[in-house]
């Protein structure tokens, strides 16, 4: 009563006592079919940890994916999921969010799924800035279909579709995303530093808007050597840290000593950092909480009652109705 603005009633308090709490096992479903050593396992573990730590209700959480190794992730989450069609994870997730804004929506997609066939959706999802977290599992190869070059494969990579080596420079998902209007959250992380992976995904989840997280991921089956130099030389990872970004723990700082303090509100520096391929920048590159979310702009707060829907339909039908003229004849 003393602080009426902040206090709650005893009954509210009692209701909170009975709120459900879940353990990490409650979010696990089935045994992942990914290869042993695959970076997808690390991402899955970080996501399940996030769900537990944030107390996300399984029935209020949705994982949407497209096609590819990464996109099998919803199968292993004991939440709602939508294993969509190739490249179309984002439109499905946007529909879910628009219809049910109270749900926590995550999107798991791969470099082929997002940057090739789904590129148009990716660009517009960034522009819509709907409140969801997108994780781009970037292993730089089509793995599920057994080794074809993807848009992010490095130049010269020999694959089943580029037997003489790929001809084009790899697409940089970070610089692309940072160039799109309304971008509000861009981060990069590698799958082999689990603590930072968790921190970044957690920050992405807490950001109100569209959070784009590129996760550089190892493929032990088709490109076992590709990330080796980075994996075994901590100096080739650049740790971005800031009080408004990720704070590096002493354990991580002991191994990964190459660091840069980067303010996530600095877009110009974010773009410079984003273009670096070696060392791999890790952390939050850009964050802007001010960008409006599409669902907030679109939904006017009115309840979709039967009468409101009817009213809207009638208004549409009226456009095609032939009205009787003044004499009363059609």
């Amino acid at each position: 009563m003393m602080d009426s603005g902040h206090s709650i009633s005893p009954s509210e308090c009692l209701l909170r006592m009975y709120e459900e709490h879940h353990e990490i096992e409650d979010y696990q479903k089935g045994v992942p079919r990914w290869c042993t050593g695959c970076g997808d396992n690390a991402i899955l573990a970080a996501i399940q940890r996030l769900c537990r730590d944030e107390g996300l209700l399984p029935e209020k959480t949705v994982f949407v994916s497209g096609i590819g190794c990464s996109s099998r992730l919803p199968h292993y989450m004991n939440t709602y999921g939508f294993h969509g069609i190739h490249g179309r994870a984002l439109p499905v997730a946007e529909g879910v969010k628009l219809a049910r804004p109270e749900l926590s929506v995550f999107v798991n997609t791969g470099d082929g799924d997002c940057c090739s066939i789904g590129a148009a959706h990716w660009i517009h999802a960034v522009r819509y800035n709907m409140n969801m977290t997108m994780m781009l599992h970037d292993n730089q190869i089509y793995g599920l279909t057994k080794m074809q070059a993807s848009p992010t494969s490095p130049i010269g990579l020999k694959s089943n579709t580029t037997p003489r080596g790929s001809y084009l420079e790899a697409l940089n998902p970070l610089t692309v995303t940072l160039g799109i209007s309304n971008v509000s959250f861009v981060a990069q992380v590698v799958d082999w530093i689990p603590e930072v992976l968790y921190q970044v995904i957690s920050a992405a989840y807490h950001h109100k808007g569209f959070s784009f997280v590129r996760i550089i991921q190892r493929c032990p089956e088709w490109l076992p050597k590709l990330m080796e130099p980075w994996l075994h030389d901590p100096q080739r990872v650049l740790m971005l840290h800031h009080e408004d970004g990720v704070e590096i723990s002493p354990a991580v700082a002991k191994v990964y000593t190459r660091m840069e303090e980067h303010d996530p509100s600095d877009m110009n520096r974010a773009r410079e950092i984003a273009s670096s391929i070696d060392p791999i920048p890790t952390g939050i590159l850009y964050r802007n909480e001010e960008v409006p979310c599409y669902e907030d702009v679109r939904l006017d707060g009115r309840l979709r009652t039967a009468s409101l829907v009817k009213q809207g339909l009638e208004a549409e039908f009226d456009k095609f109705t032939v009205w009787p003229d003044a004499s009363g004849q059609a």
Partner: peptide, 22 residues
């Protein structure tokens, strides 16, 4: 703290190696 949960060791011996709460 640096484990990437990749299942490699667990596949070799699930009793010797185990996962913690994270």
């Amino acid at each position: 703290a640096r484990c990437t949960s990749c299942d490699e060791c667990i596949q070799i011996n699930g009793k010797m190696f185990a996962y913690d709460e994270n």
